[in-house]
Structure formats: structure tokens, C-alpha cells
Nucleic acid binder design. Structure first.
Lengths: 209, 209
DNA sequence: CGGTTGGTTGATCATGCTCAAATTTGGTGG
DNA sequence: CCACCAAATTTGAGCATGATCAACCAACCG
């Protein structure tokens, strides 16, 4: 991971802003680096080259809701305003390519389909948060991640349990308990903290509802 | 409400499809009529002329999540696909105007800002469902409705308690209890089932977080 | 009036949260 | 390679919020 040393940015969770953001080509962010912050001026939209990004919002008392994770190839940074309403951070060492200004009307034909995809994703996530229980949420989350990673048995989890809980509207303890339960039931295996192997695909799908 | 009799559609909750949908100008839907259904081919996007629309998704066992309410002037019907992933129904007698095909690239410059607005709305709703308790959800809901209706003290609730609960990820009983509590605390008044008067605006805002 | 629909209230229960510990993991230096 | 450490995760016990189940009530309409 030589690129970490070559990028002139601070390292560490919730670290300082990346100096490379305005570079014309892929910007590199170490784990925890902020890509943009709430209130900051929108520079356009981005595509993840490698790594993973979390987009989230905070309540005054610190409660956090992650609205989306973005993996390699996916777009993020859509805003209705000229100012960001959310935070975006690199989850692990991540490369991000600026794509276009979101208010560039020449580009809107290209941007609209991506924005609509984000919208459908968010709406489907609403169903999960509003109406599914803890097991269903985790099962849906794993199924979704697996799909986005090509449907392989071995799912890569770039994010921590805390990130997962803030994405699913649960606590870290509940996430951990559900993982343990699924493991005990032989639905998944946990080779290490950052990957999940799906053993019983059908059971997982049924749990997701 | 003479237009109900003049429109050749069935009346009643979850009623049959409106015959007027393909008309070039505003289509009229009675309370409960379906505007489009999951799996149905997308015809484009719509603007609410008057009345109110609920957009929702169902789980296999009947659990429902309303992803959005749309009031007069607002747009809905954005989809990433050529097929609808959600249901849309008139909440009360409602007029709906078809605006454009969502895959019409000439229109994308006009459509993109509206789609982005829907996206931000959905993402903010995620924060409510994922991280706020029942009182906060109701307070946020009332605040949002008030804003969209011009910020007046008297809020019009076109939707039932059941709709509200399916929007906020609560049960109808919890919605009712929170309304009663806010009334007892002097934050709101309930002149009738379909309106709310905000008495203590600041308290409501603080509760919404 | 009687019936139906939608809403409120009460009592009990269960899911998931909180607080507290134990344990595992991954990294670091000997 | 191994011991050690800090951070992350897992596990446990008790609790609280909101769900469930069951009456009750009010408005509306034939």
C-alpha cells in the first residue's frame, strides 16, 4: 500500500482533509480521511476507483446514520444544493475520481441514471430501516454486499461493526450478536473480522425477506 | 368533490387502476386509487396538482413502508429502471399531471434537480428511521409537513394514522400515543383527525432534534 | 338507530438497547 | 517467532422503548 506514504494527507480516523482533493485525477485517501463534509461547497460527483466510502449524517448529540456505502466502481456525491448535506469518508485506503459537476447541465444526461440508482437504493434502504428486524437487516445487508461484489461466497467487509450498525440503525452489540447467531446456525462463517463466507445462501435469502 | 363521480374509476382503498392514466392532461384519482404499481411499466414522472400521494413498498408478509408522501406541486415517479419498483396511490381525491418520460434524455436537465431533491429527502428520512425515537420521528414529520405547507400553524394531514405509522416505521398505536402526549404537553392541538395545530413551535423543533 | 371504519387507551410482552466485562485481533518491538 | 498492547469485537445481565393484543370510543353513513 505504497500510495498511503505518497499521498500528502494525515492518517487516522476522522483525520484531516485530503490535500489532493482538487487534483484533476484520482485522489487518494487513507482510512478515515474526510472526502467532503457537511456545509462544504460541492465540487461535483465522484467515482470510487478502489477501496470504500461511507456517506453519513450526524445528529446534534452524535448519533450517526450512514446512508450509503460505496464500493469500487460506484458513484457518490449527488446533492440537490451547491453545498453538501452529508459527510463522506474513506473507510480504508481509497482512490476517488472526480467525475463531473452535479449542476453541469451538459452532463445531466449522464448523471441522471446514476442519481436515480442512488435514489432507488436509498428507498430500498428505507424499507429495511422502517420495517425489518435485526436479523432481516443483517441478512439483507450481506445479500446486497455480495451482489455488489459479484455474487461470490466470500464477502469482503471493508467497514467495521460500528459502521455496519450505523448503516442498519442498530447497535454494535446487536450486529455482533446476529453475526454470531448466523454463524452458530451454519448460515455464514467468519474467517476473520473483515470477511464473511456465505455457507447457506438460501437461508440467508429467506431471512432477508 | 364532483370529480369523483366524473372519473371512470373504482372508489375505495386499494381500488382498481385509473382508466384516465394515459390521458394527456391531469388524471383524477379518488381516495385509495392506484396511480402505478410495482412491476408496471414506467410511463414517466408526475406532478401532484392537488391532493396527496403515497409511494410505498411491501414485504411478502404485508409489512408496508411508505417511502414518501407527495403534496400539491411536488414530483414523483422517478425510477432507475423501465419498470416501477414501488406503488403509488392517491391518499385522497387527487389530480396528477404527467410531466415527462424519465428516460427522455432531452428532459434530463430539467428532471435531474427534482430527482436530486427526492434523493436528499430519502436520505434525510433514513436518518429519522435509523436513529430517532418515536417522539423525534413524529416531531420531525410534523415539522417537515408544516414547512412543505408554507409554515403555517395549522397543518393539514391528508393521510391516516396508519399511513403515518408506515411512513415513520412505527405502529398506529405508537403514533396515536405520541400525538396524545404532545397534546397533553401543550405542544400541539388536534382540532380534528385530519389536522394538527402547532401551539409551541420551539418545543416541536427541539423534539425533532 | 345499528354497523362500520378509524382512532385512542390500557396492560403485557419482546426485541433490541445499555452498561459492564471478557475475549479476540492485529500490530509492534524484542 | 513470540510477548505484549490497544483497539475492536463478543458475550452477558438487566432494562426500556415500542410492539402486540384487547377493549373502548367517536364519527360517519346507510
Amino acid at each position: 500500500m505504497a500510495f498511503i506514504e505518497t499521498s500528502a494527507v494525515a492518517i487516522g480516523p476522522y483525520g484531516s482533509r485530503a490535500a489532493l482533493r482538487s487534483a484533476p485525477l484520482p485522489a487518494l485517501y487513507p482510512a478515515g480521511a474526510e472526502i467532503y463534509g457537511q456545509g462544504e461547497r460541492c465540487r461535483g460527483i465522484y467515482q470510487v476507483e478502489f477501496g470504500a466510502v461511507r456517506v453519513y449524517r450526524l445528529l446534534a448529540d452524535g448519533r450517526r446514520q450512514i446512508t450509503a456505502f460505496h464500493l469500487a466502481g460506484e458513484m457518490f456525491g449527488f446533492e440537490a444544493d451547491t453545498v453538501h448535506h452529508f459527510f463522506a469518508e474513506a473507510i480504508c485506503a481509497t482512490g476517488v475520481r472526480p467525475i463531473a459537476a452535479s449542476n453541469d447541465s451538459d452532463q445531466s444526461g449522464r448523471i441522471l441514471p446514476m442519481a436515480l440508482k442512488s435514489l432507488v437504493r436509498a428507498q430500498e434502504h428505507l424499507l429495511v430501516l422502517g420495517r425489518q428486524n435485526a436479523v432481516e437487516r443483517i441478512a439483507a445487508f450481506l445479500g446486497d454486499l455480495a451482489d455488489r461484489q459479484g455474487g461470490l461466497k466470500l464477502i469482503d467487509l471493508p467497514m467495521s461493526r460500528t459502521d455496519i450498525s450505523d448503516y442498519l440503525g442498530l447497535t454494535i452489540e446487536t450486529v455482533s450478536r446476529v453475526f454470531s447467531r448466523l454463524k452458530r446456525q451454519g448460515v455464514i462463517r467468519l474467517p476473520n473480522l473483515r470477511s464473511v463466507e456465505v455457507v447457506n445462501w438460501q437461508a440467508l435469502q429467506e431471512m432477508a425477506g
